[in-house]
Design a binder for these strands. Sequence first.
RNA 1: GGCGGCGUAGCUCAGUUGGCUAGAGCGAGGGUCUCAUAAUCCCUAGGUCGGCGGUUCAAUUCCGCCCGCCGCUACCA
Length: 508
Amino acid sequence: MSHTYITTPIYYVNGDPHLGSAYTMIITDTIARYYRARGWDTFYLTGTDEHGNKIAQAAADAGVGTKEFTDRVSASFRAAWDTCDITYDHFIRTTDDYHIRYVQEFLQKVHDAGDIYFHRYEGLYCFGCERFYTPKELRDGKCPDHLTAPTLIEEENYFFRMSKYQERLLKHIEANPNFIRPEGFKNEVLGMLREQIGDLCISRPKSRLTWGIELPFDQRYVTYVWFDALINYISGLKYKGEAVFQKFWPEAQHFIGKDILKPHGLFWPTMLMAAGLPLYKHLNVHGFWTVEGQKMSKSLGNVISPLAMKDKIGLDAFRYFLLRESAFGQDADFREESLTARYNGDLANNLGNLASRTLAMQDRYFKGIVQPLNDPPPEIDQRLAAAFTHAATEVETQVGNLLLNRALEAVFRATDHANKYITETAPFTLAKDPASLPRVGAVLHNLLEALRVSCQLLLPFLPETSQKLFALLNLPAEQLTAYSLAWGKAFAVGHQIQKPQALFPRLQ
RNA sequence: GGCGGCGUAGCUCAGUUGGCUAGAGCGAGGGUCUCAUAAUCCCUAGGUCGGCGGUUCAAUUCCGCCCGCCGCUACCA
């Protein structure tokens, strides 16, 4: 059986779920549902990133213990994704015992291999950023983020010999053109690799940072950020056992936003090389959303909450908008106006209305009882079937390229074709003549097939709607993923379907 | 400064070995059916394919320069 492993970034527990993280979740959830529906053994991981001073500070500000604080925020993320019906298989927390143990095992392995060394240096440190700055990065001698003067401190830390793997990574990316996609982001990483990438500082002394994972080879230190966070992709699998890890890891597909390309494109693969592990299969990088043309930010007060969107237009409509309105890897703009247009134009008028008129006629003319198809089928019927066969092929191709917008476009072209088919065959006119009723029955049977295949193709994208409509067709739920079931074979003559229900009531 | 991407109808975009009168969806204008969620369906709109120059029988598609937007990256007063 084919299998795949889908991951999202783990979310830092100093904020709330917003449009950006929801977008990553909806994309990955769709991909995971897509593969599951087609019988692939799929493992889908998400979680929360919980270490660092910012978290300890936020907890202190909130007047609660750090652990209690992270429990609370992590749970709120998990609850948000549950409310959004995100079908992750495991939710990892970097404060989980198994994760901590595995991070230490990983560190020890890389240390044993000689790729972690101790080094003394001094530099300008910004406590707000928890990082060192080079003089040229400063603005007027101050931290560009916090606008405070950094402190000159001397420190000894552990470094990962990342530069050792620079050449090997470069060759790997060149030999595997789809390792990082879309291409633009691959080129960015190649650009980084053409410079000296240097080594990576991976520790912080406990005097400055206590809320972290202790280095197994020096208890005066904790590990810093990436050796903690990135390793979740492996510990999350190891948690389920070595066999699960062995099976899924080589099929790993990471999905990230473009802001964390460098750690995933550079740090992570070199870390894996140092640990003697296979590299992930794909790094899939998506773009950002602006809101009404502006960058989304708390200060502008234009942050979109997925939970609010669920209440406002429903989960499926929200999913549809995000998936249809963005091209993977490119930025997109969230506009109230586009949202309404997509909802009314595609969901209500095209798909919803198609279902409505089909089921209404089936009910009105035949009391919901399915009639025989014509044998042989007229050309117009064949063309309808072909439109859906073509859509199915397109969906396969486009999802494979992560172009979910085009996959959806293809399905809606087919439902659009079905709407035209109704106009061309005019069953409502034929129905006036009793002698034409057999043809009316056949036309409606074809339309029911159109709806059935639409449900199948849309299942990963619009899970709720797909299941709801399939229930109206009164077909057994397992047939929802019976992709090889031929046109005309799903509905037995005499089968009873339900009365119509508005799937997407028009807005305004 | 270097590298990369982008700039096609009001909006979002297709257009990948250079070649028919440059396309789609939405919006807008006109018309139509009546099964349906005032939905459907049909027609129309007309864009110097960012600008200039070059290669070619022929360029949106190749080359050079320029303008604008964006990303990454380097650096200097």
